[in-house]
Simulated assay, not measured.
Amino acid sequence: MKPANADPLAQLTEIRAIMERSSRFLSLSGLSGVGAGVVALAGAAVGHFYLQSHYSGGFPELIQGPIEGRRAALPFLLLLTGVMIGVALLVAFFFTQRRTKHDGQQLWGGPARRLALALAVPLVTGGLFCLGLYLGRDAGMVMPGLLVFYGLALLNASKFTLDEIRWLGYTQIGLGLVNMLIPGLGLVFFALGFGLGHIGYGLVMYNRYERPGAAGAASKSVVAR
């Protein structure tokens, strides 16, 4: 039982922290970001070598060439994308489940469901939009579109998880806008955003919240805002 003269400000801070933990999913693992980044880099490398072996000019020739060439490459690109998403989700599930057990949170509770929905709507919309670009006359905008829509998804989801994810969203949007000016470097910007961006973000989050001695930092960060 708390003493009658307990600090009211400390009590309010504790109540706020409890409310934040019940409304936000704070157990995102930084190692999930690192794993997703490694998967993205591997996928970009596979895509690069595939396109180099089928198109003398590689990625730039694909996006600038006739639509028949893009349609021929579409099954492989969709398969590669599906594999990358599947592996990245498995990695995220493994590390995030481990952290939720450590933090005493539910992996698929209310905050996690709200986070997933906030991510899913912009991602699915952006994926379908970029598929239309790929099959139309603006294939060079596919990579910028993927980066921008992913950045918007992260900004939308930041309301339901660690606030730092906003900066990864801003990074993706910025890279996408720059990539619009040089669409021939789409694979390079994909590797920068989805690969190195995730790895850098993941390492920062791991050092801030998960490394030994950082326990409780997530709650303190939330209360400080």
Rank of each mutant, 00 (worst) to 15 (best):
A44N: 03
M143A: 15
G65E: 12
L31A: 13
L12Y: 14
V124N: 00
G82H: 03
L177C: 03
L133Y: 06
V178N: 01
S22R: 13
P3A: 09
G33N: 00
R24H: 08
V178D: 01
P60S: 04
G126Q: 02
R98P: 01
Q106W: 01
S32M: 01
Q105Y: 07
A45K: 14
A40Y: 03
L162R: 14
F129C: 08
L28K: 11
A4S: 10
N179H: 01
G197R: 00
L162S: 07
A217V: 10
P183H: 09
F59G: 10
T13M: 12
A17Y: 01
L131Q: 02
A4I: 14
C130S: 05
A139Q: 02
K101V: 11
V188C: 09
G151E: 00
L203W: 09
K101H: 12
A214N: 01
T81F: 10
G126H: 00
T171A: 07
L146H: 06
L152N: 11
Y134D: 02
L77C: 08
T13F: 07
A153C: 03
A191I: 01
V83W: 10
R113W: 09
G30I: 05
G65R: 09
E20V: 12
M205A: 10
Y55R: 07
D138V: 13
G37E: 02
A215H: 10
L62R: 11
L152G: 13
L177F: 03
A118W: 00
G186E: 04
G176H: 00
L203F: 04
A73Y: 09
P8E: 13
V38H: 11
A218D: 08
M180D: 00
L31W: 05
V38G: 13
S219M: 07
W167C: 01
P122A: 02
R98Q: 08
Y55N: 06
Q106N: 10
V83A: 12
I63G: 08
R16I: 09
R113T: 07
A153W: 01
V204D: 08
A118D: 11
L78V: 15
K2C: 04
Y170R: 00
V39I: 15
S27Q: 05
G151V: 01
N207D: 06
Y134H: 09
L168R: 03
F129Y: 05
L154Y: 00
E14Q: 15
S27E: 04
S219K: 12
I182G: 02
N156A: 15
L135Q: 03
R99Y: 03
F93I: 04
F49Q: 11
L107V: 14
L162H: 14
L9K: 14
V142I: 15
L175C: 00
L74H: 14
L74F: 11
P75E: 14
K220W: 13
M205H: 08
